[in-house]
Write a protein that binds this DNA or RNA. Structure first.
Length: 554
RNA sequence: GCGCCAGUAGCUCAGCUGGAUAGAGCAACGGCCUUCUAAGCCGUGGGUCGAGGGUUCAAGUCCUUCCUGGCGCGCCA
């Protein structure tokens, strides 16, 4: 719709230049937008104001010239007006909006999708929690966000891969092994002073008990390092499969699980260090190897190899991102907790250092989740093992509410998540508000069927019966779904889809209360059925994309 | 001290690449069910967009200084 209008305007501009009505010959980068105020028409362009300088004429004069060149009203636009400082406002013919409804009926579940990102490969890496304990609520937000970003990108044509990076090398996984071994020994009567730096949660004891039951006491005789190695591997695997199960219950399905350890086994880490060295980006100081990240905007250089010979986590990350790039992704998106923001510059430096554009790496920093229950803060401390797991929350409030709430805010703003509110089946709860709109249309459909009125397919209803302002307004809002999706994808902001859904549901509920769909005139009924079913389709498409169900009854 | 993010209605937050009178929900108050699901709708009140300066036809949006809050600044991961 917008593109079609743009073509009209551009050809009008061109004819102005050709006829000499406008002199500069400079085609401005005009904007076409939907005015906030419906009195300003359906679309508005700032073309005249943009040209004021190059034309050296008042914007309103230019606008008049342009409007003259556009010619008389036609079957596309009904009215053109010049307003304010020089805006040109267009009101489109209703038939344009009827076409949108037909298009939705025709395209169904694919309405809103596009091929804007065709040919571009994007990887979204998210969650990537250490396999040392179950996912907690903070990971849940990362999971919902990463998954939705991936879904939205895919919907607009990008080739998308969802990946989980497993930190199965390094200290934390060792600590896991040690924690398990200690609990295991404790279970066999040994008195253990359980160290503070070990994992405190009950799940550790549960796992240790399981080992005792299936493997017996054979690890008591093993040298400690061997025993820890076994427990580390066992614990890591078990916890990881638990994480996978939790994610699946949350509706998140990873395409690829990538092991940090494999980077060592394949020599990737070594190669990464070599490459940086060859490029003259490293140096030795105090017995350690440093990466000159300050060359690329970081505020200090970073250690790659410690003086004791161990590589750092950062060295793994260099290798990991090198490996990602070698898989041919045009864009790499990492979803991190916002407390890792200090890491951004050095990761960008890796890209620059390896000769890639730092623009190829996008970071989505997800802020903290503030868990509340009835307005009261729920205390959490990972160290003491007192955290609320994602599983608990999903079990309590349900997957739909959980995912919706996580996506309701921009990821870079903190999120209050109130368990009581999320469970409430009331007007306070935006999840049900949107789902309810969908269920209501389904209910109308059932009533229509009882009355023997069939659902009109594309082109089967006389849409010219839709003459009310609120009906056209709904159709206009529906026409904006594809661009909403595209914006959400390009900016990696799935919350835009949530806000759109809330607006659409609000307009629908308002229409529903004001006008009956099923009326005496069967032609009007069928036209209105076509309209509300277009609403239903879009709500269903958007909710599905975000991993939230669209129930037919509530 | 340095850096990142934020500061918009009493509360929680939207505000798309700068656009016309700054929006929504909650809370408060008043209405609407013999009519397709009241998990809904309609109405009322509520704002120096943290403060100052700048850029321009136009600034909540861009630049700059300052104030406030959260987070981060390991040869941890």
């Amino acid at each position: 719709m917008k593109d079609r209008l743009r073509q009209y305007i551009q050809s009008a501009l061109q004819s102005c230049f050709d006829s000499g009505a406008l002199s500069s010959g400079i085609l401005p980068d005009i904007q076409i937008e939907v005015p906030g105020n419906p009195q300003h028409g359906d679309f508005s362009t700032n073309a005249a104001m943009m040209m004021a300088r190059t034309e050296k004429r008042a914007p309103r004069q230019i606008a008049e010239t342009l409007v003259a060149a556009l010619g008389p009203a036609n079957d596309f636009w009904q009215k053109v007006e010049i307003a304010g400082p020089g805006f040109i406002n267009f009101t489109l013919a209703p038939v344009c909006w009827y076409q949108v409804l037909d298009q939705i009926a025709r395209e169904g579940a694919t309405y809103g999708r596009s091929e804007a990102g065709k040919g571009q490969k994007i990887q979204v890496e998210f969650v990537s929690a250490n396999p040392t304990g179950p996912l907690h609520i903070g990971h849940g937000r990362g999971a919902a966000t990463g998954d939705a970003v991936a879904a939205v990108l895919k919907a607009v044509g990008y080739e998308v891969e969802r990946e989980y990076y497993i930190n199965d090398a390094g200290n934390q996984i060792n600590t896991l092994g040690r924690s398990l071994l200690l609990r295991y020994r404790e279970l066999q009567g040994e008195t253990i002073e359980f160290p503070e730096d070990c994992y405190q949660g009950d799940y550790i004891t549960d796992l240790a008990r399981e080992v005792l039951e299936t493997e017996g006491n054979r690890f008591l005789d093993l040298p400690e390092t061997d025993a820890i190695a076994w427990f580390r591997s066992f614990g890591g695997k078990r916890i990881l499969s638990g994480i996978d199960a939790d994610l699946q219950a949350f509706g998140v399905f990873m395409d690829h699980w990538f092991s940090e350890n494999s980077l060592f086994e394949s020599g990737e880490v070594e190669r990464g260090l070599e490459l940086l060295k060859e490029r003259g980006l490293t140096y030795e100081k105090d017995g350690a190897v440093w990466f000159r990240t300050t060359d690329f905007g970081d505020d200090k250089d970073r250690v790659l190899v410690r003086s004791n010979g161990d590589t750092t986590y950062f060295a793994s990350d260099v290798a990991y991102h090198m490996e990602k790039l070698s898989r041919g992704f045009d864009t790499i998106i990492d979803v991190w907790g916002a407390d890792h923001h200090g890491y951004v510059q050095r990761m960008k430096a890796v890209f620059s250092g390896l000769g890639h554009s730092p623009e190829a790496l996008h970071l989505i920093l997800v802020q903290l989740v503030n868990l509340l229950r009835g307005g009261e803060q729920v205390a959490m401390s990972t160290r003491a093992g007192e955290f609320v797991t994602l599983r608990e929350v999903v079990d309590e409030v349900g997957r739909d509410a959980c995912r919706f709430f996580f996506l309701m805010r921009r990821s870079d703003s903190q999120l209050d998540f109130d368990l009581e509110l999320a469970k409430q089946q009331s007007t306070d709860n935006p999840v049900y508000y949107v789902q309810y709109a969908h269920a209501r249309v389904c209910s109308i459909n059932r009533n229509a069927a009882e009355q023997g009125i069939s659902l009109p397919g594309a082109g089967e209803a006389d849409l010219s019966k839709l003459v009310l302002d609120e009906e056209l307004a709904l159709a206009k809002l529906l026409s904006r779904y594809p661009e909403t999706l595209l914006g959400a994808a390009r900016h990696h902001e799935p919350h835009r889809v949530i806000f759109y859904l809330q607006e659409l549901a609000a307009q629908f509920h308002s229409y529903y209360n004001r006008d009956k769909v099923l009326v005496e005139d069967p032609d009007v009924s069928r036209a209105r059925l076509a309209l509300v079913n277009a609403v239903r389709t879009v709500i269903c498409n958007a909710l599905t994309l975000l991993g939230v169900s669209a129930p037919e009854r509530m």
